[in-house]
């Protein structure tokens, strides 16, 4: 496949964007940063499908489309199914020799939000991973159903207030842990699984290229800071993502063939998770005296998870 140069940003910037402006995502949304970067990572033709979510409804508001590639509009749960169907058809037609341009390289990519990946589209995604199609699934994880007003999803972390798990006098927000989707996908035996963040553009671009190059089903979870539901100023998207990766709330790592774990980013100065929480309105209630224990719990979870990642990296299992 034709991968583009990601040696430095200047060379990367010579790519021609294939996601057009005037889509209707919120100002400062990280979704489009991630999607643009994926499309700039390769010169190949792309067949893309999106689960329903912010990305889908905002980039295809009739009569406009913001996509300069083939793009399939599909239901809430089945982007993975649609794109694997397209992939199966492409292979069959290649075999029968009925393709117009059989030598043109094509990559198949599915996008989903965290709602459609962790919850609603989970069994569709699991099935597609198990069938072993050659495609890449990218989850744009903003930790809630942002498109419908910020309901709790199984990606919402402990302590965050959402419209269906609200903080108040009797509750500190969501009480359950976030689902570890990366480990679940790695357990499918997928050849490449990773968690990446847009503020580290180079590791993200490398991960995308690796996923596109790898034959077989690849899964990438990306952190997509949501200005509307995380409640921070639109200009701070990259700043908040920096805090997320530096506090190890979102460690950046990859898992190859389900067992070989590599940590891709080690912060020089690990910051306390308070700094990350304080930058967002959805965690404001945690700084009340009666909720302090939740912050301690979050920090404890982060430390334990980071310890686990480091040990797994060392043990290569």
């Amino acid at each position: 496949m034709a991968i583009t140069s990601i040696k430095n940003l200047k060379e990367f910037s010579t790519n021609n964007d294939r996601l057009e402006g005037a889509h209707l995502l919120c100002p400062g949304c990280a979704h489009s940063m991630i999607v643009r970067e994926l499309m700039n990572c390769t010169d190949d033709n792309l067949v893309i499908s999106s689960n329903t979510g912010c990305l889908e409804v905002s980039t295809a508001v009739y009569p406009y489309t913001s996509w300069d590639t083939s793009w399939i509009h599909i239901g809430f749960e089945n982007a993975a199914t649609a794109v694997t169907g397209a992939e199966a058809m492409y292979k069959a037609r290649k075999r029968k020799g009925t393709l117009k341009d059989p030598d043109a390289p094509v990559k198949f990519v599915a996008f989903g939000g965290d709602g459609s990946t962790y919850d609603i589209g989970f069994q569709w995604l699991s099935g597609a991973m198990e069938r072993g199609h050659d495609f890449t699934y990218i989850c744009l994880d903003n930790e809630n159903y942002a498109n419908t007003g910020g309901q709790r999803s199984s990606a919402t972390p402990i302590g965050a207030t959402t419209s269906t798990a609200q903080a108040g006098t009797h509750s500190y927000g969501k009480k359950e842990k976030k689902k570890d989707i990366v480990a679940i996908m790695a357990a499918h035996g997928a050849p490449y699984v990773a968690q990446l963040a847009p503020n580290k553009w180079k590791s993200m671009a490398k991960g995308f290229q690796k996923a596109l190059e790898t034959e077989g089903p690849c899964f990438i979870n990306t952190v997509s800071a949501c200005t509307t539901e995380w409640r921070f100023d639109p200009k701070d998207t990259i700043h908040v993502t920096d805090l997320a990766t530096d506090s190890l709330m979102f460690p950046i790592y990859e898992i190859i063939d389900g067992h070989e774990l590599n940590i891709l980013y080690r912060p020089k100065n690990v910051i306390p998770v308070e700094d990350y929480l304080a930058a967002q309105g959805r965690y404001r209630h945690l700084f009340k005296p009666e909720n302090k224990h939740v912050i301690e719990e979050i920090q404890k979870n982060i430390d334990a998870y980071w310890e686990m990642l480091q040990r797994r990296e060392e043990a290569r299992i």
Partner: peptide, 27 residues
């Protein structure tokens, strides 16, 4: 690389300006 709205016009490794038709002013 971080513009969410494809509004930074870059050609041949040079930044040329801002596409005010598509910029939403996020900052």
């Amino acid at each position: 690389v971080w513009c969410p709205d494809t509004s930074i016009i870059s050609r041949d490794k040079q930044m040329l300006g801002i596409d005010y038709d598509h910029c939403k002013g996020c900052g």
